[in-house]
Computed example of a mutant assay.
Amino acid sequence: MRRPFLAALLTTTLLVPAFAAPPLPEWREGDGYLIGVAVQYQGQTYRALQSHTAQKGANWNPASTPALWQLHHGPVQRCSPWQAGYSYQLGDQIRHEGDYYRARQAHTAHAGTEWQPPRVPALWQPIAQCDAVTPVPPGNTDTINGIKVPPDPGAAGRKTLAGIDADNDGVRDDVQRFLAQEVGKHPARFKYAMEMARITQQEILSAGGNDRERVRTLTNQWSLALDCFYDTYKNPTEDYEWRLNFSKKVAALHANTSDRMNAIKNSDAMASGMMFRSPIRYQCD
């Protein structure tokens, strides 16, 4: 089982074709897609809500899987009413029965699930008003390599398994600051490193549930983000030693308390013996 970056650092190969992909590629069964990637399918544009591989025979085409794909129709209008059946992106702001909410993660409010914002705090964060885009007060941020990041959580960030995520982007503040310092000068590299950190945080928080299929899904998503991270380098050996040390630091940071280390060990144990499929090719945003 991999820990962030280590296993794939030793075995990675570049899987993207030598030719340049079109701006909006056609969706293909068997391909891997990173969250946010846009594709064409049956003449319409869709955007990936989750990193995933379109497994052969699963019929996971964009039109048939609203949990994975959103028909692209522009951003949600600020403070529009919450709607069942609508696909929401991270950060979307809506109103519901006189209260206001911000989406904690991308999701589709499938009809019949009763996923109204007050019922699912894992998906929706109450906010004072729609103008309150971020819970981090203005001025209470630092700038590292041109990236605005939350303040250093210090010892308080190690008191709980989840730690502190002041801007609710799914990445612990101490991890976000580290990534901004290490790879913040390269926007694409930072983006994919953040996606891997976001998935690793989900692994840590869900490890106690003993859900092996969720572990499989998260591992596949993490691997896609890793592939896209590698694609920011010219070849597999570029900065190899630096990347190896970077991976060790990231792994140590994610597991910097005994509870987090135990959660990672539990996740690794659940993944032991599983079969994982590699996509035929993958699309990076």
Rank of each mutant, 00 (worst) to 15 (best):
Q221M: 14
E238W: 04
N210R: 12
A197D: 03
D231P: 01
R172T: 03
Q201M: 10
V183E: 02
A166M: 04
A162Y: 00
D239E: 11
N245C: 00
T237M: 04
D165P: 02
N256G: 03
G208D: 12
I204W: 01
F190Q: 09
F229H: 05
D174P: 06
D165F: 03
D169H: 11
K249R: 15
T232C: 11
D259E: 15
A180F: 07
L244S: 15
N168V: 08
L226V: 07
F246I: 03
A180T: 04
L218D: 12
L226H: 11
F178A: 08
Q176C: 01
D259F: 02
S206M: 08
L161W: 07
R198S: 12
Y192H: 13
D165V: 02
A263G: 08
Y240H: 10
A207M: 05
C228I: 04
G209P: 00
T200G: 08
Q202F: 02
Q181P: 00
C228G: 01
P236L: 07
I264Q: 11
D259R: 14
T232R: 13
R189S: 09
A188Q: 12
L218Q: 14
T219H: 06
R216V: 14
F190I: 02
T200R: 12
K265A: 12
Y233R: 08
K234M: 07
V250M: 14
A193T: 10
A251T: 14
D227G: 10
T219I: 05
Y192D: 07
F178H: 12
R189T: 10
D173H: 07
R216Y: 01
A251G: 05
L253V: 06
L218K: 06
R189A: 14
E195R: 13
K265C: 00
K185L: 08
D169K: 08
Y240R: 12
M194Q: 15
N245F: 06
L179F: 05
I199V: 13
Q221L: 06
